[in-house]
């Protein structure tokens, strides 16, 4: 049941440019470092003994922005596909549970974002290798900074999808999203409990996996709240 819904949702995002977005996000993040390293490679190499780590941290200063922005666009997109001709009523009048309709949207956005993370890993490793950052390639660290921000961003995903699906006007989730991007940008200034800070993977304990675990946990809570609210509402 849920599988056919997900398949149908993947069909619906055809020709909407979502796959392009999925590619542009990680590419953009790495491209910024291409400019950075292209212009002042020697200077950057002098900044830290561990050149790989410094490179990864540079990349990671933009990853959270890309992820939060990506979530805002993707969730709003998913909702607007159904909003456009009010296809919600047609979808919900099919023999499907409203919970699964919501889960399906969540799954599709997660899949696209996860694919972006895989691409980020590939681009980040690939460009890193061409820079000659050292023979010792820190694969684990590369994976950490490719995939953990995705998990740490789950609460943002849960919140944005919730607001996007129940809002009649997509200006509301987009406004919330813009605020979110600004918060993600100001991550170093924020206390640890602000969810938009989590994709930056920094916290007082200095363990990045804490952000990912917190993200999954709190993301699940927000997902459930959104799903319950979506189910409760009348379809217009």
């Amino acid at each position: 049941m849920i599988l056919s819904l997900v398949k149908a949702d993947f069909l619906k995002i055809k020709r909407k440019g979502m796959w392009l977005l999925c590619l542009i996000g990680p590419f953009g993040v790495v491209a910024l470092q291409m400019v950075n390293y292209g212009v002042r490679k020697d200077y950057l190499f002098d900044q830290m003994d561990d050149r790989w780590l410094y490179y990864i941290l540079n990349i990671n200063s933009f990853t959270p922005l890309a992820i939060v922005l990506g979530i805002v666009i993707l969730t709003s997109f998913m909702a607007s596909i159904e909003d456009e001709t009010n296809a919600w009523k047609q979808l919900v009048a099919l023999p499907v549970s409203k919970r699964e309709v919501y889960l399906s949207k969540f799954t599709v956005v997660s899949c696209v974002l996860f694919l972006s993370s895989v691409l980020l890993f590939l681009f980040m490793s690939g460009y890193g290798l061409t820079l000659g950052l050292g023979a010792d390639i820190p694969y684990l660290r590369l994976m950490e900074y490719s995939f953990l921000p995705f998990f740490a961003a789950f609460p943002v995903l849960g919140l944005q999808l919730w607001v996007a699906t129940v809002s009649k006007n997509q200006a509301i989730p987009v406004t919330l999203g813009v605020v979110g991007v600004i918060l993600a940008y100001s991550a170093p200034l924020l206390p640890d409990w602000v969810i938009w800070k989590w994709p930056a993977l920094s916290n007082d304990w200095d363990h990045s996996y804490i952000n990912a675990l917190l993200g999954i946990g709190f993301g699940l809570v927000l997902y459930l709240l959104g799903m319950i609210d979506f189910k409760r509402r009348d379809v217009k």
Binding site: R15, T85, Q90
Partner: peptide, 9 residues
């Protein structure tokens, strides 16, 4: 009411 459809498909 009004027909619902996905215009891009």
């Amino acid at each position: 009411e009004n027909p619902s459809y996905y215009p891009h498909l």
